[in-house]
């Protein structure tokens, strides 16, 4: 199964008179020679793992294996109840992103979407949207297909690996996938989804992968939260009819080029950026003793 470009995705969806999620579900079923029900059920299972991860990651006493992180999901959930500045919905979205990311760092069971380092962003966007709008579970399951279709194009034409493309490839991609999915959940067109994808990605181009002590914790967990807010911002703009001046496919190409020219120290080696800040170095020593 391959979608070569976002443009191809839009053309196919238009030709078949399908949403991107329907097109993706259908194409996947054809490819693996199984029924659409089987594929749907497998994706529903992924959604259930995400829901479980939100629950398990929101508890007060969660700690990562290193002891570096944990408890911020719970902290955020308490704050969200008080509505904060932007209201309960927005703060709950951030809560979910942090909770799932913290659970991942604690060697919990999560769905890599597209990667483990960025696993909080789709739960933070799609699940909070489903709850807020009281949408049926099916809407969230289908949104995962939409997100997956956009992720596939990024994987094919750029990269989803921090070691290859920096954090733009992980949290950037997840945020772009989430933005495109939110648009479909809100009733927007495939073209609006493409614009949301482009806008979200553009705002994270060049983002480096500089994990402290090489762990998927600092700054990854908080970048998941920020990825969620960028996804919502991009989706809102696209739904308002705002277009990305640079088309999504060209943004993805730019992302590939940036990733290729990014120095090795900023691509998940733990040798640059925040990883070599004074605190980053001290924490590494404290955790590993060398």
């Amino acid at each position: 199964m391959e979608f070569d470009s976002i443009q191809q995705l839009l053309t196919m969806a238009e030709k078949e008179k399908l949403t991107i999620s329907e097109l993706t579900l259908q194409t996947q079923a054809q490819q693996c020679e199984c029924s659409e029900e089987e594929i749907y059920d497998q994706m529903a299972e992924n959604l259930h793992v995400m829901l479980e991860a939100i629950k398990n990651g929101s508890v007060k006493d969660i700690k990562s294996t290193s002891g570096l992180t944990g408890g911020d999901g719970w902290r955020m959930s308490q704050y969200a109840k008080k509505k904060g500045i932007l209201g309960e919905f927005f703060n709950r979205s951030i809560t979910y992103a942090i909770a799932v990311s913290e659970y991942n760092a604690a060697m919990g069971k999560i769905v890599a979407s597209p990667t483990a380092g960025s696993c909080g962003i789709l739960p933070g966007t799609i699940i909070s949207m489903m709850e807020e709008r009281k949408l049926p579970e099916k809407s969230a399951v289908m949104a995962l297909f939409t997100a997956g279709a956009f992720g596939m194009v990024i994987a094919k034409n750029a990269s989803l690996a921090g070691a290859e493309g920096g954090c733009q490839a992980e949290c950037g991609s997840a945020s772009a996938m989430g933005a495109a999915a939110l648009v479909e959940m809100a009733g927007g067109t495939p073209e609006m989804s493409a614009n949301a994808c482009a806008i979200a990605l553009k705002n994270q181009l060049g983002l480096v992968c500089d994990p402290v002590a090489g762990l998927v914790e600092v700054p990854c967990i908080k970048r998941n939260a920020a990825g969620v807010s960028i996804a919502f911002t991009a989706a809102e703009m696209a739904l308002a009819g705002i277009k990305s001046v640079i088309p999504a496919d060209e943004v993805i190409e730019a992302m590939r080029q940036i990733g290729e020219t990014m120095p090795c120290a900023l691509r998940e080696t733990g040798q640059g950026g925040l990883a070599v800040s004074a605190t980053g170095i001290r924490l590494k020593k404290e955790i590993f003793g060398d």
């Binding site: 993706t24 490819q31 693996c32 998940e268």
Partner: peptide, 21 residues
């Protein structure tokens, strides 16, 4: 490529490339 390569795998954390891969 498969859609579940992108939305998936279900895995034990913390890293898809360094743990699940």
């Amino acid at each position: 490529m498969d859609i579940f390569d992108i939305i998936g795998p279900v895995m034990i954390g913390p890293s898809s490339s360094h743990t699940a891969g």
